[in-house]
Design a protein around this nucleic acid. Sequence first.
DNA 1: TATTACATGCAAAATAATTGCAAATAAATA
DNA 2: TATTTATTTGCAATTATTTTGCATGTAATA
Lengths: 137, 137
Amino acid sequence: MQQGFKEMLRKAGFRATPGKVALLELLQDEVKPLTVVEIQKKLRQKQDTVTLYRSLEALTEKNLLARSELGHGHAHYELSVGKKHHHHLVCTSCERVEDFSDPSLETALIKAAKNAKAFKSINSHSLELFGLCARCS
Amino acid sequence: MQQGFKEMLRKAGFRATPGKVALLELLQDEVKPLTVVEIQKKLRQKQDTVTLYRSLEALTEKNLLARSELGHGHAHYELSVGKKHHHHLVCTSCERVEDFSDPSLETALIKAAKNAKAFKSINSHSLELFGLCARCS
DNA sequence: TATTACATGCAAAATAATTGCAAATAAATA
DNA sequence: TATTTATTTGCAATTATTTTGCATGTAATA
């Protein structure tokens, strides 16, 4: 898949640097959005914090990554290419995060976006459900 | 309405302090979620920053306020009592925020929440649509 | 291989949020 | 109304998160 990520980066206007490739590979193996600190740990400090922030920002801008705010006071990132569009269930007690998706909800969202007359275009959306996970309740 | 807020605070287990009452009154007059800094300016520095953070946290916990993350890297707060449940349209160019609500979307959301079997209970949700407002596009 | 524009690392700083503790005060009680 | 008590507040300090400037390094291109 390494080759795929390299090509993907170039198509998006980036250089296929080891750092960015490693970042994408790392996120590919994750099932939930990671914080900057979590990503850093998994990369074993091989990348400067500033570089990581800049990469995350740039890749998010080009929609290779998706940023989500889960009410924890810091951003979370996940790979957005090659993944089914989904939303998040967030446990307000332990911060556990699970993905979920719902076809009829998706339909309703697209319809709602079309009705948003105050805006000319809707490019993305984020939806989080907050509650208690099975373990915490 | 001051009396109403005082009672509301006591019912939620708080003291009806001038600070908290002023905070609720301030947010009542707003049509969009405010950041901590914006709230501070409007309160004219009559409250310590720490106290403000603590009040916002506590009132959000009791659902008198609603916190929303709008992709700006910091929290936003608005009054949740006495307001119709709604979501946000966020302009990714100028950061303009508009409310919107959609009954059929709401139905779909509630249904989706019920199907979230991984979680025992869903207490709240937040939905933001990101795009370009009429002025920016 | 040489060139060039993009990417990275380091230092520093800006922004955002939290903690501990003593003093102040709202609410309950006498 | 005076007293008591637990909550709330303010201050100082700290931690966490993100950003900026600039010199150096490196991927892509010719």
